[in-house]
């Protein structure tokens, strides 16, 4: 088990390096220049000299190889430099937004997992009864509905219902407050996007749980467990669920990583200043340093989630653990 984990961690390094090379090259292949954008922003016209000075300041004229290794060297010391656009340290820019995105992702994951496993298992056990149909309706609706659209519905619902009940419409706060500063302000902001994204998430995971469970319940070893006269709850929890969880964990992991990096539209809907928004901004500004840092962060999250999924796999399934 220990060796397995070490091996998996060592595999992370080439993956991250690959991501670094890719993002570095791709960014520089996109037409456009941050200095042009910066200077044009103030008047629509810029002179060549200012452009040259700006490019020199940002070190864009130097050979690519030098730029690359300088950047990687910084990354290895957790020094991401400053944003080319705002000149503020990248760690600072990302800090709060990361917290916000992480909180939403964790909240969504937690509730989605709980809902998915209980609904998925129940639906599989009660296959083809009205409970099963209800659960399937719930999950098909969740998969069909984009989360930004659900987000819009939630906002409208909030506005209309608060207007109706309290006389004036209430909107969630726009400014992010960390949970340890003011939990109520924090949750009243974060819970809605978590709900909007969590629904789809739980729908996907419920379907997965249900079909994995149905498959496992047909296995020979479940028949053996029945023939041994075990209690039904032992058969479900100990024999079936443990086997059925494997594919579910994969889905949960992928969705979590996606929530951390790809919540662009939903953030827009809820007016959240999260990682997704920062991402879009920095790409359209040609902010190389910021985009690179964000890509590395997202890659790291993906890799780390994968690692956790793999470790859970090995923990659940001895056949993986002992290979």
């Amino acid at each position: 088990m220990f060796r397995y984990i070490v091996k998996r961690i060592l595999l992370v390094i080439p993956t991250l390096l690959g991501a670094a090379v890719l993002v570095f090259l791709l960014l520089r292949m996109i037409p456009g220049d941050i200095c042009e954008l910066k200077l044009a922003g103030t008047g629509g016209y810029f002179d060549k000299e200012a452009l040259a000075i700006c490019q020199k300041e940002l070190g864009l004229g130097r050979p690519l190889l030098v730029q690359f290794f300088e950047w990687i060297w910084g990354v290895m010391r957790f020094d991401f430099g400053v944003s080319m656009w705002t000149n503020r340290p990248i760690i600072e820019e990302i800090g709060l937004r990361f917290q916000l995105s992480l909180e939403i992702a964790l909240l969504a994951t937690f509730s989605a997992t709980l809902i998915a496993i209980s609904l998925g298992v129940t639906s599989a056990i009660k296959q083809d009864t009205w409970i099963d149909y209800l659960v399937r309706l719930f999950s098909i609706a969740g998969i069909a509905m984009p989360s930004f659209w659900l987000g819009i519905l939630i906002i409208l619902g909030l506005l209309i219902s608060t207007q109706a009940w309290f006389g004036e419409p209430w909107m969630m706060p726009i400014e992010y407050t960390p949970i340890w500063v003011d939990p109520i302000a924090n949750l009243s902001q974060v819970i809605w996007p978590a709900l909007a994204t969590g629904y789809r998430y739980s729908a996907v995971a419920t379907r997965m749980t249900r079909s994995a469970m149905l498959e496992v319940l047909r296995e020979d070893y479940i028949r053996t467990a029945r023939a041994k006269g075990l209690l039904e709850k032992v058969i479900i929890n100990r024999h079936a669920l443990k086997n059925a969880l494997l594919p579910v964990i994969t889905v949960i992991g992928i969705e979590f990583a996606f929530l951390m990096g790809g919540l662009v539209v939903t953030e827009q809907v809820f007016n959240l200043n999260g990682l997704g928004k920062l991402f879009v901004g920095s790409v359209s500004n040609n902010d190389y340093t910021m985009t690179q840092a964000l890509v590395m962060l997202v890659a790291l999250i993906f890799v780390a989630t994968n690692l956790v999924v793999d470790i859970l796999y090995a923990w659940l399934d001895p056949r993986i653990r002992y290979n």
Binding site: E219, D220, Y221, T224, H239, N243, D317, P318
Partner: peptide, 13 residues
């Protein structure tokens, strides 16, 4: 049962 390869639960000792 007939199938010893699949009649035991793979994830339990």
């Amino acid at each position: 049962f007939q199938e010893p390869m699949t009649s035991l639960n793979p994830v339990l000792t």
